[in-house]
């Protein structure tokens, strides 16, 4: 529950940065924050704590029975998914920063208010 609260707060901080900040770099930082918060939540989901048992990373050292495998290892699926979404987040952040740089080259400002040319 604590984890859920922390990551929701982080998501809201990121959303606040995206909505209120007018600087494009700060918007990109807000996105990175949101992305990491969701990844954090997602990765934590995999660790289901079974009482009296140690949490082991999901690497198969020796073959065990099915029941043993399912109860003692932490779930590998969220970790794989988070790795994928980190890659996606990298692409998004890189593209957003290069777009911001391109806009700066054309207009001379990172401020979203100063480049407002589209309307309607």
């Amino acid at each position: 529950m604590l984890i859920l609260g922390i990551s929701l707060v982080l998501i809201l901080i990121g959303l606040y940065a995206i909505i209120t900040k007018r600087n494009m770099i700060k918007v990109a930082v807000g996105f990175a924050l949101m992305e990491y918060a969701v990844n954090f939540l997602f990765a934590i989901i995999g660790f289901h704590k079974v009482p009296g048992m140690k949490i082991i990373p999901p690497i198969l050292m020796e073959v065990k029975t099915t029941a043993n495998v399912l109860s003692s290892y932490s779930d590998p699926v969220p970790q794989a998914l988070v790795l994928t979404s980190i890659v996606i987040g990298l692409g998004v952040t890189a593209f957003m920063l290069s777009l911001a740089l391109r806009i700066y080259n054309r207009i001379g400002s990172f401020d979203l208010d100063e480049i407002k040319r589209l309307k309607g």
């Binding site: 593209f95 777009l99 806009i103 054309r106 979203l112 040319r117 589209l118």
Partner: peptide
């Protein structure tokens, strides 16, 4: 097209689209 209007539209589109994706 890398005109200022197009870059701005791209940035705006990206902000909205990424909020939905997250």
């Amino acid at each position: 097209g890398t005109e200022p209007e197009e870059l701005e539209a791209g940035f705006k589109y990206m902000v909205m689209g990424e909020i939905a994706s997250i």
